[in-house]
Design a protein around this nucleic acid. Sequence first.
DNA 1: CAGTGGTCTAGACCACTAG
DNA 2: TAGTGGTCTAGACCACTGA
Lengths: 263, 263
Amino acid sequence: MSAASTLPDPPAAEAAVAAEPAPAFSPLYRQIKALLVRGLQAGDWLPGQAIPSEIELAARYRVSQGTVRKAIDEMAMENLLVRRQGKGTFVASHAEQATQYRFLRLMPDEGEAAALQRRLLDCRRMRAPSQVARLLDLKAGEAAVQVRRLLLTPDPVSPRPVVLDDLWLPGTLFKGLTAERLAAWRGPLYRLFEAEFSVQTIRAEEKIRAVAAGPEEAALLELPPGAPLLSVERLTFTYGDRPVELRRGLYHTAAHHYRNELS
Amino acid sequence: MSAASTLPDPPAAEAAVAAEPAPAFSPLYRQIKALLVRGLQAGDWLPGQAIPSEIELAARYRVSQGTVRKAIDEMAMENLLVRRQGKGTFVASHAEQATQYRFLRLMPDEGEAAALQRRLLDCRRMRAPSQVARLLDLKAGEAAVQVRRLLLTPDPVSPRPVVLDDLWLPGTLFKGLTAERLAAWRGPLYRLFEAEFSVQTIRAEEKIRAVAAGPEEAALLELPPGAPLLSVERLTFTYGDRPVELRRGLYHTAAHHYRNELS
DNA sequence: CAGTGGTCTAGACCACTAG
DNA sequence: TAGTGGTCTAGACCACTGA
C-alpha cells in the first residue's frame, strides 16, 4: 500500500479529522491514529479497558503492525493510551487508586507529598457569567455548576488550609452534580469526573500569577488580608480540545511550592 | 544480531553509562543513544552542527538504520537533537536568532510576547554560599559568579521593570565572565552561555511561590514594598544532569502571567 | 540529481503476562 | 503455552533539500 493512499474501511475519515490549514499529506499511521482517537471520543473503549491488539488493529485497517504501532506510540506519548507489555494497550484512566493528583503541582517544601484533606464549601447551579461562558465554550446564559472548596494539610489536630479552589463546570456535562453528591465523594475531583460523568481530562493550560489575598479569601485560608498567594487559573480539556473545566486556585505557598519541569 | 548482545565497537560502553539500579536488559537502540549522548557531552559535534547521517551511524555501529533511527527519535524528543528532513540531524542549539527565550514562561496578559529590555545591575565573583554550593554541586567555598539584572517592558518612553533575576553560576565553567563582558552582550543569557562558554542548557526545574516584595526588591521593580511577586527558583542542567545555573527570578504579574501546559 | 530523513512492509525473535 | 507488546532487520519507496 502506498503511503499517500487513504484507508478503505471508514471513508472520508481523513477529511473529517483534518482541521489545520494544510495537512496536504497525511501519513498512514496518522490516519490510524485519528481513527483511534475518534474511537476514544465515541466511547468505543472506556478508560481502563484494553483496546484491540496491534495485530488485530493491523488486520482491521489493512496495514502492517509497525504502522499501527507508530500510531499507538504517539497516543501513548500523549497519555491517551498506556502500553503494558505482555498484557495489551489500555485507555488511560485517572480513576485508579494510584493517581492521587491529576494536575496539582503543589509540593511541600519539606518531606513527602501527603494527601490533602478536602472540605466542600459551596456547590450551586447557575447561569454561566459571560467570561466563564466564553472560556468554557458555552452559549451566553447556559447552565453551569460552581464549586468552591478547600484543601488542607492532613494534620489531624489543626489542619491548615493550603488551597482555595473555585471551579466552573458546564451544566450539560455535569447533569446530576449536587452538593450532596459532592460532599459524599471521597477522592480527587477528576476521578469523580471520569467515574460519574464520563468526562476524561486530557490536558490543561494554566495562567499563574502572584496576588494579594482579599478579605474573604484571607479568612477562608486563615491568613491576614493582603498575604501573597499563588493564583492558578486552569482550563482543562477533554478529547478534541473541548474545555470541560475552569478552575481558579489560590495556593498558600509559605510551606509549599509549585513544582515545574522545563525542557 | 540478537537484542541482548552489546555493541562491538567501543567496548564496555553500556557499563560506563549505566547508573540506575537494574537496567538488566538494555536494548540496542538505547546503547546507541548512550553513545550519541556521550558524543554530545564530549563535544564531538557542536550545537547547530549536523551529526552523521543515519546510514553512516548504522554502518559505524553495525546495526540497522531503524535501530539508529529509534535512538535518534528519543533524543529528538528530549530536545537534544533536531531532525530536518532532506538535510540531516543537528545538535540542538539555543544560540540561534529564532530562540528568543529559553525557559522564561512569562506572557503579557494582552497582546503578543514582545522582547524585553535587559539591564545589568551587578556581576561579581565570590565564594559560593553553602546553600548555593549545595544546589550547584560545588565544593564548599568554591568560586561562583553572581549576577543581578532586570528585564523591562520595551516601552521606549517609560520602560517598566517586570523581572528581577538573581543568578549564581559555577566559577569554573564561566571563567572569563565579567561585568563588562555581560554588559556588552546583546541577547539572551542562555545564548551567551552556549556561544561564549560552551555551556548547553538541556532542562530545568523550577519551584514557584508567591512572596511579598522586600524593600530593596520593591525599589528595583518600582513597586510598593509588600507587593505580591512570583518567585521562580530555577535550577538549570546540562548534559548528564549536571547543574550549571541557579536562578531566582521575581516576576511582577500585574500585566503578565506565567503560562504552563499540563498533560 | 544524489543524499537526507520519513513512511511502510514482512518477518524474525525476545520479554513479559496469565491461564 | 498462547498471546501481548518490544526489539531488530532488510529492503522498498516517498518527501524534502540543495547543488
